[in-house]
Design a protein around this nucleic acid. Structure first.
Lengths: 249, 249
DNA sequence: CAGTGGTCTAGACCACACA
DNA sequence: GTGTGGTCTAGACCACTGT
């Protein structure tokens, strides 16, 4: 039988951090460094609440947040268990710049184009602006260790952001948006593949017809406004999309 | 100013369906068919609870589930608003079979291989079985309208499932797993691209070196056990990965 | 300031799993 | 049966937003 684990848990009621959050952090940390081993039972919620001097709904809220992260599983009539597998993070709205930086690849960006243009039909539809209306176009080449990894073409609605070329070369677009107070909310993505055309091959240092990984994405903020439409091509020998999924219960 | 909408909401206390779920379904339906327009305010929770004869936590639970789906946004001091954009579904653990069926493409499957084999190092590591130990190997060709769309190679731990060839040809692997009482929980995926080798090109009706979309995935059930490892190749002219993402709040 | 969501309490009854 | 999570109530106070 799986053991019921006794943990050293406590909450600080004078802290501004919500109690449920303090608890979920402690539980997550316990799972992280092995104090709660995979498969172990958490002990029932009532008893846990009594031990911490919390109400049951508060304890439930803490546990629920970890269930949502995929770290715990609840079974009615059984209990709450630590999931065995190493669930890391569900897919997030990732930024290539952040991905590369996290991998220690010291990303570099070369801005090829940074100008206002008339919106094509596709861009206009994606951004919700009139066709032929003004939008901002950015073309960038992303490099790691001096090697081209991806060609990024983005369009943004006019006036959304101050698109300084120097800033674009030193950080990622999403970071600039967040810094400008834009709350990213959702994105619609499409990932595919195709053979490289002559210009693409040249830009990325590939041969014509070489397989390329493509990603098209429209990103929305929390008011539902489209804030960015991107058309990216990646060298598949240098980059692939990796992510963890959770099944919606 | 955005209008506060008055809706015709009600709950049935004699129903076995949870009250919060009844409410969230009605709200979702109202958003779906436009009774709640994007940007409109939902009205405060206390008043909504009073109107329905529910407690505030119950109403909050209903609203929270829609916030989690990305349909609503809460702002402290402001209220709860319907998101403007058409958020459909966050990425789920999708099955190619279901994807094709949903697109009305009448998928067909040809089972090429269905046998026990010794686990390669990669498969053994993915499934958590000893290298060289017995695993089950399935190779399938997925067709739509008689045209090959994808080549699917999967490995499963031994004895997990009764892998009937006829059943494999008439439905998808995930459906068979769910029908066998396996609760899918999470998956780790990697999507990339490469040029087709001679055998792959032959199988999919492509020429050698043609770009192919690749997906490698390991799926886990809710006990953390790996239940499947797949290595799939898709014809990019016929298939791409489309999904909606929500930003982690 | 008033109004909103964010957090929290101390109980209650029910449905399901397992022995 | 017993024990678990699932749902629900009727309040409370706090933090933030916008006027």
């Amino acid at each position: 039988m799986d053991p019921v684990v006794q943990l050293d848990l406590s909450v600080d009621r004078s802290s501004p951090v919500p109690l449920y959050f303090q608890l979920s952090q402690q539980l997550e940390a316990a799972i992280e460094h092995g104090a709660l081993t995979p498969g172990s039972l958490l002990g029932n919620e009532i008893e846990l609440a009594a031990r911490l001097g919390l109400s049951r709904p508060t304890v439930r809220q803490a546990i629920q947040s970890l269930v949502d992260k995929g770290l715990l599983v609840r079974r009615r009539g059984v209990g709450t268990q630590v999931v065995h597998s190493q669930v890391k993070r569900p897919l997030e709205l990732s930024s290539l710049y952040d991905d590369l930086e996290a991998a220690g690849q010291r990303p570099a960006t070369k801005v090829l184009v940074n100008t206002a243009v008339a919106a094509s039909a596709e861009v206009a539809a994606a951004l919700g602006v009139p066709e032929g209306g003004e939008v901002h176009r950015i073309e960038r080449l992303r490099l790691a260790h001096g090697e081209p990894m991806a060609y990024l073409c983005n369009h943004l609605p006019p006036g959304l952001l101050d698109l300084d070329t120097a800033q674009l070369e030193s950080t990622g677009l999403y970071r600039m948006m967040r810094a400008a107070g834009i709350t990213l909310h959702s994105a619609r993505q499409s990932i595919g593949a195709r053979g490289a055309g002559p210009a693409e091959a040249e830009r990325l240092g590939e041969t014509e017809g070489a397989p390329l990984l493509t990603m098209r994405r429209t990103t929305f903020d929390d008011t539902g406004r489209a804030v960015e439409h991107g058309d990216h091509t990646y060298r598949p020998t240098r980059y692939s999309f990796e992510f963890q999924l959770l099944v919606r219960p």
